[in-house]
Nucleic acid binder design. Sequence first.
DNA 1: TTGCTCCTCACGTCACGTGAGGTGGC
DNA 2: TTGCTCCTCACGTCACGTGAGGTGGC
Lengths: 272, 272
Amino acid sequence: MFTIGEFSKITGLTIKALRLYHEKGIIEPHAVDQQTGYRYYNHQDAEKARVIRLLKDMMLGLEDIADILKDCSDDADAVGILERHRNRLEDRINDLRKAKGYVDSILNSEREAIAMTKDNSSEIVEKHVPDIRIASIRWKGRYGDTGKYFGRLAKSLARHLAGRPFNMYYDEGFKEEDADIESCFPVREGREIKAPEGVSIRSLSGGKVVSIMHKGPYEQLGRSYERITSHLKEKNYKVVAPPREVYIKGPGFIFKGNPKNYLTEIQFPVSE
Amino acid sequence: MFTIGEFSKITGLTIKALRLYHEKGIIEPHAVDQQTGYRYYNHQDAEKARVIRLLKDMMLGLEDIADILKDCSDDADAVGILERHRNRLEDRINDLRKAKGYVDSILNSEREAIAMTKDNSSEIVEKHVPDIRIASIRWKGRYGDTGKYFGRLAKSLARHLAGRPFNMYYDEGFKEEDADIESCFPVREGREIKAPEGVSIRSLSGGKVVSIMHKGPYEQLGRSYERITSHLKEKNYKVVAPPREVYIKGPGFIFKGNPKNYLTEIQFPVSE
DNA sequence: TTGCTCCTCACGTCACGTGAGGTGGC
DNA sequence: TTGCTCCTCACGTCACGTGAGGTGGC
């Protein structure tokens, strides 16, 4: 016979828990002193405690545990309860995974934004960009709808994203309405990705680009475009592919943020 | 301006939740009628509600949500909180996975036990068993310690198990103490499995066996051994590998069950 | 007598849901 | 006047943990 303290040490269950289990009829101590109310446990109780610990390792609730202890004397008897429990566990895992997916996509996005914010002078530079693999949606409409398409890409491809989103502009000049735009997200190499409806997965050639970092709201992008196009003319460069606008830092998933802090890189692919 | 009911429909948050958020200072309605206590919400409140829904989708707690709404105006500001949250989510996922692993191993075990209980006549039969891949521990001691080794295998290889556990006996006759025993669990083919300390993963040849199904407690296995060995003699079979005892139904993970219901198949591999 | 162990309340946790009981506006 | 909407308590959830305040045995 053990006092509750001794029994607690033997079984690894806390005293508080043991008292609760008594109250709920899950482990009734073998004897209770009428005078003092002291609980006394024996070896049979210890066996029950072992089972409870096992079942708690499976994260079963006390109600299920009580049912199992009451109705089962063989593992096979518990299959029904365990099957239900297994499904609930699976559901909870899936919910958590989904939540973690959201959080991860924000964190990745922010981490990349920070890394790419390092070199943010506003000077015009010439550089080489590598080939990348992208997931993209090509659409027609107004510039301001861009966020919708990035949202769609991010939601359906969260796990695969690997870089900052960008737009490619297929029109010759600037178009207010009905612009021909491809919204792109870089995705990881290697893995097989099944493209959602309306999304194309393909690889995009790199090469020489003339680029400028634009700081501030999108309404002021025009200024940077002017600067870069006059540079192109000056140097007599030939533009060989649609210009890209890479959104280093823009509206976030959660907050819009302050447009003054937006960072956008404009790239014009030119011949070597 | 919206009443709480309208605002609830717009935002998808319940009225009860909205009242709670008010109380906690998470969304203060734009105006409250002093007379009636009616809450009135506006478009700014709706923007806050959108953010809350996003954050709830990430399974953030109200306290974190309150902090984010108070301190952040850009996704980047929330990175610290989100990182902590991500880790907690991951921990919870791992805990749940572990729990699910336990449950799964019991369910698989029981399902297989049921499937293999179908043909349970007590007649001696001759049959062919296929090659199988096993995880095993070879040890010396007394028969009764077997459970310990199966427990160890089951715990460390839960996800890979694919069949009923069995022992192989390497001694010539019966040995009370210091018996030379290999405790085995069939494991899934294909996947790479890294063997835990003391466990070997290998493949075991099948072939012709003489087998008998023993019903009842292990103490009575002797009888079935007698029957099968006299059969072997009668037919003049040559035993070509250590006999196996397959525990179709024995003590469970949770309960010992009733030994009267135990089912054990004894197999003697013989030459073709 | 001093610690130690045990006892029984009662309250807190987390994000609401479920009433009860009542009031104001159409 | 009848519904409908809104209000404020108060209680329940789940498995204990954390005291408070007190008693019995060495």
